[in-house]
């Protein structure tokens, strides 16, 4: 009773309850967060195990830091070549897709002409076409173009990005029209305005689009698997898969290859996480 008068009792226990709940939430959240890291950790531990620690039950969870699997794995395949292929395919896809998106989005925003909205609808129509419907016809088309089993076969089908056109158009629409009027009065052409005014302002959007196209291209597996046979033109994901399906491959080396292929993306992710999150919240649903 007296406690209540002093105002401590129920309030204090309520505060204690809230503190406990906060702590509890923090612990549960930590467990959830770590469970997403755990599979990567397991692969990491396996990749630096000593041979004696691989086939044990229960599995041991403390790394041995034996880097022999990495050197052994490195000599099993021309990894630099595969990395080079992946990097070339990714960079070229980003460059082409950004260029086509910028030009088209500009025309669809700043130039008035008959049928503009119809053309934009035609671009958006691409989103309605399911990817699985394109798998076989695109293979046939690349066969007719004599491009099967090349790096270009992994680049050209991704040369037009609806996601890119859409986001850039959204951005261009948000620019004040007075910019364009002022440039026009100064006698600037469309290309001049695009290059000197619109593009520099669009840098963050270009970065987001490039990032998404890049991650998709770097991680692509199904299409390279279908359109390539020669190791010389294959990306790293296909090479890793071949190592997996080769029987009798040492688990430590396999894990080392997996970590090696994952690491570049993790490093990039840590730098650009903010842009990824912003892009996801901005362009909901368009990148799939």
């Amino acid at each position: 009773m007296t406690k209540r008068v002093r105002g401590g009792g129920p309030n204090r226990s309520h505060r204690a309850y809230r503190t406990i709940m906060r702590g509890f939430r923090g612990v549960v959240a930590l467990a959830v967060g770590l469970s997403f890291l755990f599979p990567l950790y397991i692969a990491g531990v396996t990749s630096v195990d000593t041979p004696a620690d691989v086939f044990v039950f229960p599995p041991h969870l403390v790394p041995d830091f034996d880097f022999q699997p990495y050197t052994a794995m490195w000599h099993m395949a021309p990894w630099l070549m595969y990395f080079g292929n992946t990097a070339f395919i990714t960079a070229t896809t980003i460059a082409i897709a950004l260029a086509t998106s910028v030009l088209a989005a500009y025309a669809l925003t700043f130039i008035e002409f008959k049928g503009r909205s119809a053309l934009f609808m035609l671009v958006l129509f691409v989103l309605m076409v399911p990817a699985e419907a394109l798998l076989i016809p695109n293979y046939v088309i690349l066969h007719q173009m004599n491009l099967l089993n090349t790096r270009w076969a992994q680049i050209l089908p991704y040369g037009g990005s609806v996601f890119g056109v859409f986001l850039l158009r959204q951005f261009f629409l948000s620019l004040p029209t007075s910019y364009w009027d002022a440039a026009r009065i100064d006698g600037a052409s469309h290309l001049r305005f695009l290059w000197s005014v619109a593009l520099p302002l669009a840098k963050p959007v270009l970065f987001t689009i490039g990032l998404y196209i890049g991650i998709g291209s770097w991680n692509s597996f199904q299409w390279p698997l279908i359109v390539t046979v020669s190791h010389q033109v294959q990306p790293i994901e296909v090479a890793v898969q071949r190592l997996m399906s080769a029987h009798s491959v040492d688990w430590r080396r396999l894990s080392a290859a997996g970590i090696m292929a994952t690491l570049p993306l993790v490093v990039i992710f840590l730098f650009v996480q903010g842009a990824i999150v912003r892009g996801l919240s901005r362009g909901e649903g368009l990148h799939e």
Partner: peptide, 9 residues
């Protein structure tokens, strides 16, 4: 953002 084949291992 991790590659599917590599993390499947």
């Amino acid at each position: 953002i991790t590659p599917v084949i590599a993390t499947s291992i």
